[in-house]
């Protein structure tokens, strides 16, 4: 659930997945399916996206999501990764 938790903090970030869709992250679920608003694509390359303003993308079709570094706390993210790793190896942190 780390990445679900992570992406929840990224509402309103510009994202790009492999078909290069840029938009504002509006919502995300635990499968990392995402919903983008204000969608922009390379119209010349993907003319069928011209009219798309808002799009749901199945998580499994995503290769990359490029993020804005200013909205990510990488140290916290590393800690979160560690906590998750610890939890799954049985060395769980009980408190907050």
């Amino acid at each position: 659930m780390l990445f679900f938790s992570f992406f929840k903090t990224l509402v309103d970030q510009e994202l790009k997945n492999d078909v290069k869709i840029t938009g504002t992250l509006r919502s995300i679920d635990q499968y990392l399916n995402i919903k983008l608003d204000n969608v922009q694509t390379d119209v010349a390359k993907y003319p069928h996206f011209v009219a798309v303003r808002s799009v749901f993308i199945r998580g499994s079709t995503i290769r990359y999501i490029h993020l804005n570094p200013n909205s990510v706390d990488t140290n916290l993210l590393q800690d979160a990764s560690r906590r998750e790793a610890m939890a799954s190896s049985g060395d769980k942190i009980v408190g907050r």
């Binding site: 990445f3 992406f7 998580g59 499994s60 290769r63 990359y64 999501i65 490029h66 993020l67 804005n68």
Partner: peptide, 11 residues
């Protein structure tokens, strides 16, 4: 290049 990128595990 990318300053910060999420890479989905399946790839």
């Amino acid at each position: 290049k990318s300053e910060l990128v999420f890479v989905r595990g399946d790839s």
